[in-house]
Simulated assay, not measured.
Amino acid sequence: MEQLLLHLRNLGFTEMESKIMVELATKGEASGYEVAKQLGVSRSNVYAALQRLTQQGYVRCGEGEPARYSVLDPEELATMISGRVQASLAYMESEMPRGGPVSPSFYNIEGDRNMLGALIRQLNLAEKEIVVDVWREEASLLRNELEQAELRGVKLLWAFDGGNAAPAPYPVWPPLGGKPRRGGGRKFSFVIDRSWCMLGMRYEDGTAQAVVTEHEVLIELLLNHFSQEMVLFELEEDMGPELTKRYGERYSRIYSKYVMHDKDTDEPGKDQAE
């Protein structure tokens, strides 16, 4: 019930209108007095909402005294709402003023639902290319949108981490000053049409944080990182035994050579980049 009321509110109905429509759909028909009594609210508020819904065509008012009201069948209601929403969207798209150029900026997104919603909207707008660096858990949540993009002819470039794979080729930089790092998170990044990107972290408790931007510098950094990961992966696949034979244990330390370890942590050593 709460989910239904939430979606009705998302479609533009007030909380009172939503409850009245559900009540009428449950009963088939009812008077304003009966609806008010069932909902435990004032008759004046119910009659005002019923008048609005009747004028908009979502509710029918029968003849008689007292008047009895009924809501449209779900299919008819959905068709009417969809038509009006599509008409409003089309008008907004064509008539909304378009200002001058806007400098690329960064904005933060908090919350799993908000992050996934923003990402899904952008994936549905993709025209040419989607570059994905993501864990399989997050990819599974977006499977439908990614499959639809491929069907539209959008090129997908993937980098997956399934959780049981070998450690990433890049070292993890420790936090400075001994500040604790929040654990249990999975990083992800998406670059869409080389003009929009999202970079963030999703945690086991369902929380998420992400940065979204169209700034060309961050887009280029993410694309370069993706390319380097893929190149290194293929080199290790093709030359793994040779690399191990030539470098031995030193091979596993090459990347960490360029990490600045914090002197105040338990991490070893000092600045090793020379």
Rank of each mutant, 00 (worst) to 15 (best):
N10V: 00
T14F: 05
E17G: 11
K19F: 01
I20M: 07
E23G: 08
E23F: 05
L24I: 03
E29K: 12
S31N: 12
S31T: 12
G32D: 08
Y33C: 14
L39D: 04
G40I: 11
V41D: 09
V46T: 02
V46G: 02
Y47R: 10
A49F: 13
L50C: 07
Q51C: 09
Q51N: 12
L53M: 04
T54A: 14
Q55S: 13
Q55T: 15
V59A: 13
R60C: 13
G62T: 10
E63W: 09
G64Q: 13
R68W: 00
R68T: 11
L72Y: 01
E76Y: 15
A78H: 01
A78T: 03
M80V: 08
G83I: 01
Q86H: 09
Q86W: 07
Q86A: 09
S88D: 11
L89T: 08
M92K: 08
M92A: 13
P97W: 09
G99Y: 07
G99E: 15
G100D: 12
P101E: 14
V102S: 15
P104G: 15
S105Y: 15
I109F: 00
I109K: 00
R113K: 10
R113F: 03
M115V: 00
A118D: 12
A118K: 02
L119Y: 01
I120K: 11
Q122G: 12
